[in-house]
Every structure is written in C-alpha cells, then in structure tokens.
C-alpha cells in the first residue's frame, strides 16, 4: 500500500486572489504545495492556509461532496474541491479560481445569492391547492416507486453552483434562470404530490427561462452529483411546449392520502404526543 504521508511531488497552485477592500481586480498568486497521495484540492488549500498564507479565503464545510460549499474552477473546470484529488487532475501545475458567472466576494468565495434568488422564484417546494391538508395532514400521500423515479435524480442537487459556472448562456445573460433552478423546477413539476406547474410555467417559460438553454451540455458534464441538469431542462421544455399546445396529459395532484395500508396504522405504534405548534393558515 502506498504511504499516504510521503510527498509524491510538488504541485504549483495558481490561486486567484481578490480582496475587495484593497484590490481593484483579481490577480493570481502561486503557491507550491507538497502533494501526498489521496490529497484533495481542499487539503491543498488547507496546506496553503496553515503553512504559506493565512489570508487565503474559500468556503467549505463537509469535505465529502455533500454540502456543496467548495465549488471552484479547477484547471478551468467547475467542480468540488473536496472530491477532486490533486494527482488526478494536475501534473505540476494547478489553477484554482472562484466559480465564474458569480460575483467574487473574496478570493475563492463566490456570491451564490443570484442563484438562490432564481431558485426561490421557481417555488422549489410542493405546491398544493388543498392548503389545509398540507398544514394539517390527515394521512400520507401515496407515491409509487415509478412516480418517485420520475424526479429522484434531480433531488440529488446540492446547490454548489458548478452547473451555473459552466453554463455558456449564463456567461452573458445575467437574468437566465440557469441549470440549477430549472432542474429544481422540473423536480417539483414531476412530483405527483405537486400542483404548482402552472405557476412555475409562468417563470420557466419567460424570456430568460428554460428556452435560453441550447443544450451545450456543460452543466451535466460539470455536475459533481450526476444530477444531469441538461436532461431536466429538456424535459421541462417538453412539458412547457405540451402545456402551450394543450397536449399534456391532465396531471392532477395526488389525491390519495393513504398508502397500501389504506391509512390504518399498524396496531403496535403508540399514539403521537399532542401537538405543540398550530400551523398558521
């Protein structure tokens, strides 16, 4: 087995630096990092911060591709720093930059708010006409495994913004909704519990909505979770066109409140404690 403490080779990190208080524009600073086997780019940045330059800023949390904080531009490709091994992508040189198509807050920290605002505008939650049932459920919504699979892939999105950084349309069109919000819209449109598609169609079918996607495919190539936003957007467009032509099968939200047990709880489950919160209407 390889000795994980042994330095394999030195790799030069060309890191984009930008301090909004002192710098007019970003510049590149180079650090030499001794790389061990299995070392991720995130580990390399930690090495720089601990040993070479404590002022370097970036965002991270979980270190295991779950939280979506450490999206960066590594050798020109947007991806997560935590699940990219240095030796897999770099011989001796590695460029590390912030995700493009977002404002830079500092160094490698992009401002993802523009993405989250677009995400919010698409109502990324189950929208139902029967609000009383949502606030005070009388049972469960029954969904078959096939119905689940119609949107499950798009639920794996971790909102890291890599797809937005890879998208050529977003490079020029600041108002384009982008791959991540659009695939989130498709995720809820496809959910049998949801009634919200007509509302979302108003946004996804707008001038800067789904039809600004021209299938360059970079979002699906960049996605570190295999969510395949390009696929979601094409299915979304299909549904928009069918809705416009009134050819879509009439989809009503799932009305069945009980699963195979027809709402009868198994006898051995103790009663729920009394409610402590009353949902507001």
């Amino acid at each position: 087995m390889a000795d994980s403490n042994k330095t394999v080779r030195d790799v030069k990190f060309h890191v984009t630096r930008y301090n909004p208080e002192t710098d007019a524009a970003p510049y590149v600073k180079t650090y030499t990092v001794p790389v061990r086997e299995g070392m991720t780019v995130l580990d390399g940045l930690h090495y720089i911060k601990e040993n070479l330059d404590g002022s370097l800023a970036w965002r991270f949390s979980c270190r295991m591709g779950i939280c979506g904080s450490c999206g960066m531009l590594l050798n020109g490709r947007p991806t997560l720093a935590c699940n990219t091994q240095i030796l897999h992508i770099a011989e001796t040189q590695l460029t590390v930059g912030p995700l493009p198509n977002f404002d830079i807050i500092r160094d490698l920290v992009p401002d993802l708010m523009s993405m989250f605002e677009k995400h919010r505008s698409l109502k990324p939650y189950v929208v139902r006409a029967d609000e009383a049932e949502v606030n005070d459920p009388a049972g469960e919504f029954y969904q078959t495994p096939e119905q689940l699979e119609a949107y499950l892939q798009f639920t794996y999105c971790i909102k890291c913004g890599c797809c937005m950084a890879a998208c050529p349309t977003l490079a020029t069109d600041a108002r384009y909704l982008g791959p991540m919000p659009l695939s989130a819209a498709q995720r809820y449109n496809q959910d049998t519990r949801d009634d919200g598609r007509p509302q979302r169609n108003q946004v996804t079918g707008s001038a800067h909505g789904a039809f600004r996607c021209h299938y360059a495919g970079e979002c699906s190539r960049a996605c570190p979770k295999g969510v395949d936003p390009a696929k979601a957007i094409q299915h979304l467009k299909r549904r928009l066109v069918l809705d416009y032509l009134r050819l879509a099968r009439r989809k009503k939200a799932c009305q069945k409140l009980h699963g195979p047990g027809q709402g009868q709880p198994p006898g051995n489950i103790p009663a729920a404690p009394p409610k402590t919160v009353t949902p507001s209407a």
């Binding site: 930008y18 909004p20 208080e21 524009a25 970003p26 050798n75 020109g76 490709r77 947007p78 912030p98 995700l99 493009p100 198509n101 977002f102 404002d103 830079i104 807050i105 992009p110 401002d111 950084a165 890879a166 998208c167 050529p168 977003l170 490079a171 020029t172 600041a174 970079e218 190539r221 960049a222």
Partner: peptide
C-alpha cells in the same frame, strides 16, 4: 461590500470549461 463581477461574457460562449 465591493464585488467583482466574474461573468465570463462572450468568452463564456466559446470557452470557459473543458
């Protein structure tokens, strides 16, 4: 807080990524 606009512009149509 100052922000640096990092949109790729027209270069993003042609390049910007592998």
């Amino acid at each position: 807080i100052n922000r640096h606009d990092n949109r790729l512009g027209l270069w993003g149509w042609l390049g910007g990524g592998r």
